[in-house]
Design a protein around this nucleic acid. Structure first.
Lengths: 191, 191
DNA sequence: TACATTTAATAACAAATGTTATCGTCCCCT
DNA sequence: AGGGGACGATAACATTTGTTATTAAATGTA
């Protein structure tokens, strides 16, 4: 995510490179928890290989909010930014290779670039992108039926349907895995 | 919303005041559409008196996303910022007195303050606040039942329940007005 | 290879929520 | 004052989705 801003704000490249060099490259097995709900986020993660999910415990039900694949970055943003307990858990789905950027490094960067308009504008852009993303997730949950959401997922992001176990997809669509089974059954019978 | 930043970024006060002076003060009757879904947002609105809602047509069903009361400001942000057709409609609920800030004025402000770190930081703060707000709306829709959401609304924002017609509240809670009636009935029988 | 764990499908039943229709009240508007 | 629209309650019925339990296939691992 951060990295797509290299072209838009080339003046920041020396900074990105200097700070990104401070990441650690770590291998995790499948179903490893990188950040547990309730703990304060200490790191920003970048996926070199594998896949993660952002999720939370919803009255005992596991709910997935977002999936992350190769070349995508993430953190439990609110927790990361405000130093408060995370609402979310971050967990690997597949065995994964992750670049871990400690918050201390990020904060140094914040301090150094605190007055740099290009850096601030990059943050604004990042923030608006995220806002846009969540707004769309929000609207899709409201306006689309589970069937529509599933068909849309299959069409727009087939890699998710291929690589992610079905019960995580169900928890992402906001339904039970039983119901997702029914939906798939219905689709295949229609064809 | 913008106005709570006066204390945090006092250096910007001369700008706020200069630009805010360019607003128009307008009275609208109830059920007046200020921005129609599909049109591009031309204004930022600030409520002096009355109440508005942000909503959209959801396959024929009217869905309310947010309510705005006295001293709150709003725009169809994506449309306003990116000059694209608005996903949302903005409509008065009660007869209202609204301060209207044209986008042209806002854009002048953007240009003038484009390199001002305090201004950029104020935008970042505003953006994060909105993100936080929508994240919570999103989570509440997922994790809470309509009953819980209604009880919570009644407790946390009783003015909404008092001033807003019930079918708008239902559309905000994500249920039909019939179902909201049932919920209210159930609550009153329990007491 | 064999055993345990994870994953997926299905059935039967239960609960939540939507749909449609009817009725009564209130309140704006002319 | 009266008429039309907006608002809210309720009932009967339909649909969607969840719950629980069972079975089977796939997968990882000793």
């Amino acid at each position: 995510m951060l990295f797509s801003f290299k072209e838009r704000f080339p003046s920041l490249n020396p900074y990105w490179e200097r700070y990104m060099a401070l990441q650690k490259r770590v291998e995790y097995p499948a179903r490893t928890i990188l950040l547990k709900e309730g703990k304060t986020a200490q790191n920003y993660y970048f996926v070199e290989q594998g896949c993660l999910r952002l999720c939370f415990d919803n009255n005992g039900k596991d709910t997935t909010v977002q999936f992350f694949f190769e070349n995508e970055g993430l953190a439990s943003l609110e927790s990361f930014r405000k130093d408060i307990p995370s609402i979310f858990t971050i967990e690997t789905i597949e065995p994964s290779i992750i670049h871990v950027l400690p918050k201390t490094v990020f904060n140094e960067m914040l301090r150094e670039l605190d007055q740099n308009p290009d850096f601030l504008k990059a943050l604004i852009d990042i923030s608006f992108e995220r806002q846009h993303h969540y707004m769309n997730e929000f609207l899709s949950r409201i306006r689309d039926t589970p069937l529509e959401r599933y068909l849309n997922l299959r069409k727009e992001r087939p890699h998710i349907v291929k690589r992610v176990p079905q019960h995580y997809i169900a928890s992402y669509l906001g339904i039970t895995s039983v119901h997702l089974s029914r939906i798939k059954n219905k689709i295949s019978r229609k064809k």
